[in-house]
């Protein structure tokens, strides 16, 4: 029964592959399969508890989409998006129908390239089919490249930057990231140290890589103090910054 069901999919897929290899005309669309993230790496990626943001800078950095921004790969990804009936659920403009909007920056299962890859490869519980049995990894990455081109995804760099910022703001959490106890609101640390975002900043936030609003340079030391400023209560003087290296 199952074979009979998936067979037409394989037929469509063979047709599609033919079309793809034809238009690739010498495969200049990106790195070979060997350059792709391994299945183990992908499965190690956290699902993303806040709409796809991971606080693991290292993991996020390790898995950019090798096809990201490659115009040919994006075009092939778009062709696959239509041929494999993605458009039937997510709409031809990818703004969602039966399936969710892929352009709105809201991701139930994570908006990093590797998380989107996982959603396509493994499927999801509310109706998303698992395409891993029908599409080889490089084709899925091209679909991811197309989805990335629509602007609703999270970039690896931005996520890494955020993760770095989280590390700077709340080093206690980042250093104990693998310790479950660290995720429980800590009674040892004052609230203003574990949840910096809860307090409004008295001045605009500054981020690593951006010119800080008050500090003259963007040296690591300055950035740290900018992070420390965020968690300060508006009326209190900045507490001594004690970041761990």
């Amino acid at each position: 029964m199952l074979n009979r069901l998936v067979q037409p999919g394989f037929i469509a897929f063979s047709v599609m592959l033919g079309a793809c290899s034809h238009s690739e005309g010498g495969s200049s669309t990106g790195p070979p399969a060997a350059g792709l993230p391994s299945a183990g790496e992908i499965s190690a990626l956290p699902m993303g508890h806040i709409a796809g943001v991971t606080d693991s800078a290292a993991l996020a950095r390790s898995m950019p989409n090798p096809y990201e921004g490659n115009p040919q790969a994006v075009a092939l990804g778009k062709a696959l998006y239509i041929k494999m009936n993605c458009a039937g659920c997510h709409a031809y403009n990818a703004k969602g129908n039966m399936g969710p909007d892929l352009t709105d920056t809201y991701w139930r299962y994570g908006g990093l390239p590797a998380q989107i890859y996982s959603s396509i490869h493994d499927g999801r519980a509310e109706g998303m089919p698992a395409w891993g049995s029908q599409l080889p990894p490089q084709e899925i990455w091209k679909v991811v490249a197309y989805i990335q081109s629509l602007g609703g995804t999270y970039s690896v760099e931005g996520t890494a930057r955020n993760a770095q910022r989280a590390e700077l703001i709340a080093p206690e959490l980042s250093s104990q990231r693998d310790d479950d106890a660290a995720f429980v609101p800590s009674t040892e640390a004052p609230p203003d140290e574990v949840s910096p975002a809860a307090e409004p900043a008295p001045a605009p936030m500054s981020y690593p890589g951006e010119p800080p609003s008050q500090a003259p340079t963007s040296s690591p030391a300055t950035t740290r103090s900018a992070g420390a400023r965020v968690r300060s209560p508006p009326t209190a003087p900045p507490p001594p910054a004690t970041p761990s290296p």
Partner: peptide, 17 residues
């Protein structure tokens, strides 16, 4: 706008944009 469609079980067999 119609798009020709292949049958893939459990996905839309639709093609109507």
């Amino acid at each position: 706008t119609d798009h020709e469609q292949g049958y893939i079980a459990s996905t839309p067999y639709d093609g109507m944009d």
